[in-house]
Design a binder for these strands. Structure first.
Lengths: 223, 223
DNA sequence: AACACAATTATAAATATTTTATAAACAAAT
DNA sequence: ATTTGTTTATAAAATATTTATAATTGTGTT
């Protein structure tokens, strides 16, 4: 089983997180101060650490800065203000994910699972991994995971998702997608693409994450 | 003959396990309490111990924790809840295998045999062992065992299985498998691969374990 | 702003196609 | 002669595509 450290001074939130994570099969420890959190994270090899930005004494920024000098444990940052998230990104503090409060526990669990799944995939000698939120695509294993749960995709669905995920933030017309995934010389209706997009969305949809957006009158975009 | 200790407070279940194991040639003893189980396991060198998590007085976690300080006897853990399994894994309690109730006696016997077979293979100076569930591949001896029973595989079947088992969680197309196992320059139909996969599956199939998965439209994957 | 209309996309279900499983016949090798 | 490997044929399963209908979005008009 995987061990998770929660560094959070609000006891209620910390216990809420712990309960949800334990129900989902993770072993959790809680540190209520930045200093104790840092000590624990250096002493033990956690699979993932959840850090709140606002902490008494040593704040989340300090904790991750000092931690990163020693270890590369995956970190999810929690903050009440979107500003902090920008700051973390800006400072290149090496957080692997960010969530703003308030967040749904389900979303937290999904993200934790995604990070664990990615890490597992990486340590199993697979190197060809694409990640987006709680979605993890392991190209070696030809496996797709959302929030840790494996999603059964058919070959075409998989190809379509991988193509879009490998080229995020670009909009492709249905014609282009058909050419790229079905082959230039394939003949058929572009409505096939619509249906496949629909099926992929169905299968990978979880919580509020919407990976494949519709660009009206133009096509689809992964983001 | 191999000696097995069953630590289980439910008399009916304990006797069911014992009966099945004895029919399969194992000598069994039963301990109905954690304390007596621990004493017995320390006093005698069993080849394998089956421990139920829920026990009166000292529970399964305590038993294995205390046992592991002295001995490395293989242990199979039984639990009614999947949660416990995670806990065992998470605490690094050194259980070698886990089963959730309800389980089929046949499955239990198969796993017991697999552990015994692996143990035998290891103590006979063989080092090149691949294990997956009740499947044991001894590359030194060029022997494959499922639930303790030796499986006669032909050369090609063996090569195919070993290749897949050595590269788990990776999907290989029939073309790739053909190249790798039959040689790049071999000529022939890829349906040969299909047939061999089929035969290997036939021979190593036992209970619900499905080692070789079909990735539809793509290939096969060992997991 | 509210409405109607057209264009586009979503969704569900039916049909067609492809891929794989299985068994058995055949060929090759030891 | 017997075991092993390969090919072939057929059945079964899974997936792809088309089609029809519903829902949504955009646009122009009042």
């Amino acid at each position: 089983m995987h061990k998770i450290l929660i560094i959070e001074d609000d006891k209620e939130i910390a216990e809420l997180e712990r309960d949800y994570l334990e129900v989902n099969g993770f072993a959790c420890e809680i540190a209520s101060r930045g200093t104790t959190g840092l000590e624990k994270s250096l002493a033990t090899d956690y699979d993932l650490i959840i850090i709140d930005v606002m902490l008494p004494g040593m704040d989340g920024f300090d904790v991750i800065t000092k931690l990163r000098k020693k270890k590369q444990t995956p970190v999810i940052f929690l903050s009440a203000r979107g500003n902090d998230i920008d700051k973390i990104r800006g400072l290149g503090l090496g957080a692997d994910d960010y969530m703003t409060k308030p967040f749904s526990p389900g979303e937290l669990v999904a993200r934790v699972k995604a990070h664990i799944a990615r890490h597992d995939a990486l340590t199993n000698a697979s190197t060809d991994i694409i990640t987006a939120g709680s979605l993890v695509i392991d190209k070696d294993a030809h496996k797709v995971t959302v929030g840790g749960a494996q999603i059964p995709l058919t070959a075409k669905e998989y190809d379509l998702l991988v193509f879009l995920a490998e080229n995020p933030n670009r909009t492709y017309s249905k014609e282009t997608l058909f050419d790229r995934i079905w082959g230039m010389d394939a003949l058929g209706d572009v409505s096939t693409v619509t249906v496949h997009i629909q099926r992929v969305r169905d299968k990978i949809s979880i919580g509020s994450e919407k990976h494949i957006e519709t660009v009206w009158g133009v096509g689809y975009r992964f983001s």
